[in-house]
């Protein structure tokens, strides 16, 4: 099997773009400040008891319990890969419905999907949209899959640095 090094460079660039997009949008809409749904409070307090940061724990709990900008980025890349620029708008509508279904009164998911669609459309000349799907899975793996206490500390540091807590 031959490994093309261009693939890995594109994958790393798309991972960075997706990570920056959803962390910035979610932090701007105040996800680390308070738990929006009641399940996120449990996750934040448990991570604080294990030695992490409580605001980063609220952030991770909000990702689990409601389709926020992380789910929006994944849906935007999937629908852009299948349908083009119109698919991003359809994904925005689906994420809006899912947000209301999970009892979350916010616009983080809707705006995150729209900004991800615009970013993929701007970058689509030299990175194909299917790399953004893999990049989003890599980005969510670095937050929810590797080491939870360290990830919550990093997210709390970013939120405190931007002055949103």
């Amino acid at each position: 099997m031959d490994v093309n090094w261009m693939d890995f460079i594109k994958l790393l660039i798309s991972t960075g773009v997706c990570w920056t997009n959803f962390v910035l949008v979610d932090t701007y809409f105040g996800l680390p400040r308070r738990p929006g749904v009641s399940g996120a409070e449990v996750i934040g307090k448990t991570l604080e008891r294990m030695g992490g940061d409580i605001n980063g724990g609220y952030f991770m709990g909000n990702i689990v319990c409601s389709p926020d900008a992380s789910a929006g980025t994944l849906m935007a890349s999937i629908f852009y890969y299948l349908l083009g620029f119109k698919g991003g708008l359809i994904a925005t509508l689906l994420i809006f419905i899912g947000n209301r279904l999970c009892n979350d009164p916010g616009y983080a998911g809707t705006l995150g999907t729209f900004s991800a669609t615009v970013l993929i459309h701007l970058l689509s000349s030299f990175i194909e949209p299917k790399y953004f799907i893999g990049g989003m899975v890599m980005a969510i793996f670095t937050i929810q899959g590797l080491y939870h206490v360290g990830a919550s500390k990093v997210l709390g540091y970013i939120g405190r640095k931007l002055g949103m807590i």
Partner: peptide, 20 residues
Amino acid sequence: AAVYFIGSTLSSNAIAHTIG
């Protein structure tokens, strides 16, 4: 994929609420 993802998020929400 979208319907699967939204449905699984909904049931994760229910499980976290019950744990609390």
